[in-house]
Structure formats: structure tokens, C-alpha cells
Design a protein around this nucleic acid. Structure first.
Lengths: 161, 161, 161, 161
DNA sequence: TTTT
DNA sequence: TTTT
């Protein structure tokens, strides 16, 4: 089927430092554990309630994997855009299924929302968020850099809006 | 943690008719199986490849549950907005985890993208999409119906844009 | 037409303190100016480039309007979900059009992404982000608070995933 | 500023055939007019109300521009993901501003939601939606085509979910 | 100017 | 007019 969309948008905090592996090809793959929480007041008891959801994020996109590896730490707050994938594996001869948010290729995004990588503390130096945004966009950007993005006029030249 | 977002957006087709259950409270709960697919050309072999992903959707929102029950069928194309939740259950004494897209409360959406409910054929009469969009929005809409949504002016009254 | 979606998602910073007005009904309306920026490296010159986009946000949703009024300040970073609306007005007898991101009713969201309301400094006490998330969700939440959200089982009871 | 997001998601119908122009560089640029509508029941009068919003979409992304040019017609239903940009122009010596949804570079999407290109009728042959999805993804896809996307295991090898 |  |  074409005409389908599979998109996940998360804003949350890392529950642990990123975990880095390598594909046989040498490409880095980064796994993140991200928590999102919601709070609400119970309608019956009136008390404050909270629910935390944990998400598995897998980054295949090389540029984003490097960003994650270099700038994210336990506690970092991130914005993520990826897609849902469920994979099957076995445990004691029994099928298991794991659903992950995959960042791969176009239409994947990772943006740091704190400039500090606050959290674990034992982090070392991993720069600021600016260097990442730039590097990622370099590889995907397509607008001709020398031409203006828009020219006056458009669909209705006389009454352009 | 506050300041988090957990959002899933899907456009896909139902792999089966909706499955309706009832909560102890009598509220309907609807389960959907939705397929999203992507196609691409293999970089090495040049051949066309396709991957289909199956998603579990659970609708707790009563208005949306009724829409799903009444208007969706196997093959229906839908737009869905919900959130990720993973629940734990047991099988043969072993923990299992299932991740679902939950439509519940505010910020959940379900929109039919075909006016026919094409697919199974044995569908019977389940109306058109218009009746749903209306009914759902009735219960959530908040703009005072008699007042204009906007008045001229705003942050910079003289140079409003 | 049914079957349509109109959604804007922004993460950016307020360029000024929120501007609060009141509808004839007494309901508060809050206007925000939000900046989003992107940086990239120019393909030809290799130099760093930046583009900032300014957005007009209008909050009709009462709960979110109060949050904005109480907790946001110039410089605050926010996540916003709303919809596009263009309104027409006149200036010197000439039609003008202004496009805004409207937060109104269901499917609107405003989330603070910094816990401090940093920015202007002369802010006074406007609490932490947690108090907002809760209050908003109170008015929209629908899951019965006493019942478990999920029961084991689902569409395929034996092979639940 | 880094750490910002500027995203628009639309599902709507074309109010007119796509309008194709060319940049000085020869790259095609396509303008679309897209309508989104919402219906609700007036709380006071109880009558059905409808509001249609018209959006200007500008496609700079070459692959998506070709898809739009070849497969979209007046009446076509599309899913669009782009970003907001407001540009300034002059009319009778007075500043005017136009806000558009721009599809450009990574993180832009255009998906046909009807397989027919229904609408104008005088369309000629513009294939099916499949050919587009493929071609677009070819140019952006990054997963190594020969390697499995996932290997069993992950962050917690023993308790993988 | 679309669509239902 | 924000932010880095």
C-alpha cells in the first residue's frame, strides 16, 4: 500500500547514556531509552497521578547517531522524530516482539532541548547543541544556496495572498 | 518529568474489521490493526522493495470508539493520532510486552480517509465520514460559537503582521 | 470536506512576553511571538548560515491561555501544537491577511520546555512547569481513573503481539 | 537558536491544478492551494457549521515537485509535511506578507491519499501513487540495503523489552 | 478554489 | 523580538 505515514514524535529525557554499537559495515547505531511522563489529577480521588512511559529509540542515521553519541547523556532532553518498527526475536525458543522508534534516512530528526546535557554529571565535554543542528542539515539541505528561496508572486500574482 | 510529548501519527489501512470490547464500566474499547507500508528501490540490486509494518491501535475515547465501530472496516484508510503505551502481560509465566497506539482523551484523533469503507465488502451501511467528524468535534470544541474567532489587531495593532 | 488535518508543531522561543487580551465574553486570549531558527552550511561558500522564522500564536483555549499568561515570558522555550488560520483585515482600505497558529479546543497543546521561564528576569513567581501540565490535563482527560487502562489480551488473545 | 522545530502537517484537497514554475537554475517549483475543513455543531443554535481554511504550499524539493506535477490535480487529496515560512513583498508600495508551507530538503513529505488523481478529469495519464513513493524514497534512503535493519539484542540484551 |  |  502506498499513501501511508508512520511517524512518532517524542519529547523526553534519556534514562541512561546512549548505547553505541556498530553495524558489520562499521556504521554506528545508537540506542536510547527515553522517558515521557504525563500528570493528571484523578477524577475520583482528586489526587495527583503520574505515568511514565519508556521508549526504545534506535538511530541508524549516521549524522544523528554521531550527534547522539557526542552530545547526549543520561538526563538530556530531546525532541525525536522517527518511525515505529516492531521486530521479532527469540528467547528460550519463544517469540518475543519489541517495538522501537527508528531514526533512519529522511524524515528523522533529533534535536537537543537543553544546551547542557544535564543529568549524569560525569559527562565530560560534549559541546553545545549548535554544532549538531548544522552538521545534520548540511547533508540533507537542498535549496540552492545562492538563489533566493522565494520570489514575489506565486499562484495569484496580483492578489498573492 | 513534565515538558514531555508522546505522539504517534499514522496513515494506513485496517487489516481487519475493528474489534469491539467493553470495559467493566460499559465503555466501548475498540482495537484496530493498521498497516503502513513503505517502498523503495534497493541501492545495490536496484529492485523494488517493500516493508509493511503492523500497528496495534486501542481506542478508549468514547466518541472515536463509536466512529471506529460504525464506520471503519477491513481495508479502510485512516489517519490516527495517539500516544505510545507499552503494557506488560504474562504468557506461560513469562513476561511479555506489547506496544500500542492509544487514543484516549484530548489530543487523540481518528479521521477516515476514504468515504467508502472499501475493503471487506460485507460491510452493511455505516454512513459517511461527515457524520463522524461532526460528532467528535461537538464534544471537544470550545470556541464560543457566537463570537468571531478573531478580531482585527493583535500583538502589534498597527502593523499586524 | 471531512477527512482533513490542519496541524502545526513548533518548538521555539518567545520573542516577547505574552500579550493578554480579553474576549467580550471575558475569556482570556493570549498572543505569542515565537521564533524558530535553522542553521546550515552554505554549499557554495561553506559558511554558516542561519534563518529565523517568526510565528504568531493565538491561544483561545482557556486552560492554555492561563498557563501562557502565568508561566511564559520573553525567552521561554515552548512546544506548541495548534492549527493554521488566516484572517483578513483592512489597512488603509486595503485587504491584508495574517496567518496565525491557533490553539483552541481539543488537539491543542502548549508545553514549557524550560523549567525556569528564563528570559526577561523581571518575571516574578510563576511556578514550575509541572503545575501547568496537570491542570490542563484535568479538563480533558477521559480514561476512567479507577479502571486499568488495559487488560491483558486484545485482538489476538493467544499471540498478543 | 538551535533546538527548534517548525513543522506543518496537512491533509486536504487541492483547490486547483498544481502551478509549476521554474527557478533561474531550471529547478521546478510547484505551488499548491490546499483546503482543509472542519465541521462542528454550534453550541448555541445547534446547527451544523463548517469552516474551510486555504493553505499555500510551495514545493522546492525536486522529487516532490515532480510528483506533484505529474500526479496531483484539482481535487486530489494529499498528506503534506513541510514548514512555515512568511515572506514579504510589496504591492502599491505597501508591505504585504504571505505565509506558506514550504516543502524543501529533508523532513518534507508529500503523499497522495487517493489513487486516482480524481478531480479535473482532463488529467491524462499520471500513473498510480506507488511510483512516486518509490522515487522519492530512493533519493533519501540511507539504510544499507543489504544489511538487516535490526539485530536481536539492544540496550538490555537479556530483557530486551 | 477543494472535499463531503 | 527569541535562542545558541
Amino acid at each position: 500500500m502506498s499513501g501511508s505515514v508512520n511517524k512518532v514524535i517524542l519529547i523526553g529525557n534519556l534514562g541512561a547514556d546512549p548505547e553505541v554499537r556498530s553495524l558489520p559495515s562499521g556504521s554506528p547505531v545508537v540506542n536510547l531509552r527515553i522517558a515521557t511522563s504525563e500528570r493528571w489529577r484523578d477524577r475520583n480521588t482528586g489526587e495527583q497521578r503520574e505515568r511514565t512511559e519508556w521508549h526504545r529509540v534506535v538511530i541508524f542515521n549516521e549524522g544523528l547517531a554521531k550527534v547522539a553519541q557526542n552530545y547526549l547523556r543520561k538526563g538530556s532532553k530531546v525532541y525525536i522524530e522517527g518511525q515505529l518498527q516492531t521486530r521479532k526475536w527469540e528467547k528460550d525458543g519463544q517469540d518475543q516482539y519489541t517495538t522501537e522508534i527508528v531514526l533512519q534516512g529522511f524524515n528523522s530528526t533529533l534535536t537537543m532541548l537543553d544546551g547542557r546535557g544535564e543529568g549524569s554529571g560525569e559527562s565530560g565535554s560534549y559541546g553545545n547543541q549548535g554544532s549538531y543542528g548544522g552538521s545534520r542539515q548540511v547533508e540533507n539541505r537542498q535549496r540552492p544556496s545562492s538563489a533566493p528561496a522565494f520570489e514575489p508572486g506565486g499562484m495569484d500574482d496580483d492578489i498573492p495572498f
